[in-house]
């Protein structure tokens, strides 16, 4: 054994090179098989939606579909805004100011993904202990700013990317 000192020879090199090329080849085949399950171009094409908000009365909300998910658009009254801003950040499981959840100067408009951050159900409006939304599936309570207050949901309802095209139209996405 000691006489024939083990050293790297041609065969070892060929083995290593073959395994490496083989692994790269397998990876190159597996990745398309995995990635084909990601959202396709048709799904990605649905990325933006424009909504007319001129008919919404203060205190009322509408629900529109964006990327297969409901978007809540609520025109809040000044009392509701005041209520949302009176909450102490320490009382929130996922602390976030109401100001950070709306567009500057458009404080009455709350635009958020109407999807419970627990397991994806659609919360019911004007329900729950905090004058906001209540998810019937597993009992998460959200306040008038869509922030989680009580229940199993880990975070506030998500604010999607959106902008005001003009004073009566918003573009989501």
């Amino acid at each position: 054994m000691s006489k024939e000192e083990k050293k790297v020879n041609r065969r070892d090199f060929l083995f290593t090179a073959s395994y490496t090329i083989g692994a790269v080849g397998v990876g190159a085949v597996i990745w398309p098989m995995i990635d084909q399950m990601n959202p396709d171009k048709a799904q990605q094409a649905l990325a933006t939606t424009e909504v007319d908000i001129s008919n919404i009365e203060p205190g009322k909300s509408i629900t529109v579909l964006w990327r297969g998910k409901p978007i809540f658009i609520k025109k809040r009254t000044s009392e509701e805004i005041a209520e949302a801003r009176a909450v102490k950040l320490d009382d929130l499981p996922d602390p976030q100011k109401d100001e950070d959840r709306v567009k500057d100067g458009k404080d009455e408009w709350l635009v958020m993904l109407g999807v419970c951050t627990h397991l994806g159900c659609v919360p019911l409006k004007d329900k729950g202990d905090f004058n906001g939304w209540f998810c019937p599936c597993h009992g998460s309570h959200y306040d008038v700013s869509g922030r989680i207050r009580k229940g199993p949901a880990p975070t506030n309802m998500e604010i999607p990317k959106f902008e005001f095209v003009d004073s009566n139209t918003i573009k989501i996405g």
């Binding site: 995995i34 399950m37 990601n38 959202p39 396709d40 799904q43 649905l46 990327r67 297969g68």
Partner: peptide
């Protein structure tokens, strides 16, 4: 998202 193949 991968499981859905969409955004919902």
């Amino acid at each position: 998202t991968w499981l859905w193949g969409a955004y919902s």
